[in-house]
């Protein structure tokens, strides 16, 4: 694994040097667009909407539409607006995990103790474990201010990039029903269904993204020139359904006559 960033955690008076690694890998297949006639790859071109001509990268700038006029931003402007480039994850406070709704969590990263940081890393990890709390901190990465949570995961520190409160959309215009019309009997049934579907121990590993694996299998077969096997049956279509209910009814009839 290659680290994507190295810096340190500011925890009280100590700085803990760490390396950051991405904790996830993108599981979707990288598909290219092709011309079906000769399998040439498709290129994007940047077209001037006025002249219809291709614009070279060097002539492209970014702008923001403000009062119907574009304000063009230069690299310098971006630098000026960026918060100071620090290499520090500054822990501001500690909170109970349940105080933070999961809607705020974004991407997870692994933290590795860098040279010299081993003891304080272990100290922070174990203190977090014992207190049952998570650390909330801020840091700057890729010219952007970030908020994050640090929490124990297995035997390491996990950094969870978080969303700022203003990134979460308002939902007051959605139609959400109140709980006025819930009948006690229905609630009881729903609760018993929940109980039935609650495993003794949840095994997350059993949920697998099989689509990409199947797609890859198919790609390999196609590459070899083999015939593609058909998908496994899932949907029982209408004729089968009709036959099934017909047969069920007939079997029940037979039973009734026999008894």
């Amino acid at each position: 694994m290659r680290s994507i960033w190295s810096g340190s955690i500011g925890f009280g008076l100590v700085n803990i040097p760490v390396k950051i690694f991405s904790a996830i890998h993108d599981s979707t297949l990288d598909l290219d667009m092709l011309d079906k006639r000769d399998h040439s790859t498709i290129n994007y071109a940047r077209i001037n909407s006025n002249t219809g001509k291709v614009v070279p990268w060097a002539n492209i700038v970014k702008g923001y539409k403000y009062n119907d006029e574009y304000v063009v931003l230069t690299d310098e402007d971006f630098e000026k607006a960026s918060p100071e480039k620090t290499k520090l994850i500054e822990i501001d406070e500690f909170v109970k995990a349940e105080e933070i709704d999961s809607i705020y969590y974004d991407t997870p990263y692994y933290l590795e103790a860098a040279k010299g940081g081993e003891r304080s890393y272990a100290l922070l990890l174990h203190a977090l474990k014992q207190s049952g709390k998570i650390a909330i901190g801020t840091y700057v990465m890729r010219n952007k201010e970030n908020i994050c949570a640090l929490r124990p995961y297995d035997n390491m520190l996990l950094l969870l990039k978080m969303r700022f409160a203003e990134e979460i959309k308002d939902y007051s215009d959605l139609n959400i029903p109140g709980q006025g019309n819930i009948k006690p009997a229905e609630l009881k049934m729903a609760l018993s269904l929940i109980n039935q579907l609650t495993p003794k121990k949840f095994n997350f590993g059993k949920y697998k993204d099989t689509y990409d694996a199947e797609l890859m299998k198919l790609i390999k077969l196609k590459a070899k020139g083999s015939k593609i096997p058909q998908p496994r049956f899932k949907i029982v279509h209408n004729k089968t359904k009709d036959l099934m209910s017909q047969l069920k009814a007939s079997l029940e009839e037979k039973k009734r006559k026999a008894s």
Binding site: P231, F233, H237, L243, L247
Partner: peptide, 15 residues
Amino acid sequence: TFAEIIATMVQHELA
């Protein structure tokens, strides 16, 4: 009828 159900499902799979 049961055989027809199975056959229909198989045919659906290997259309």
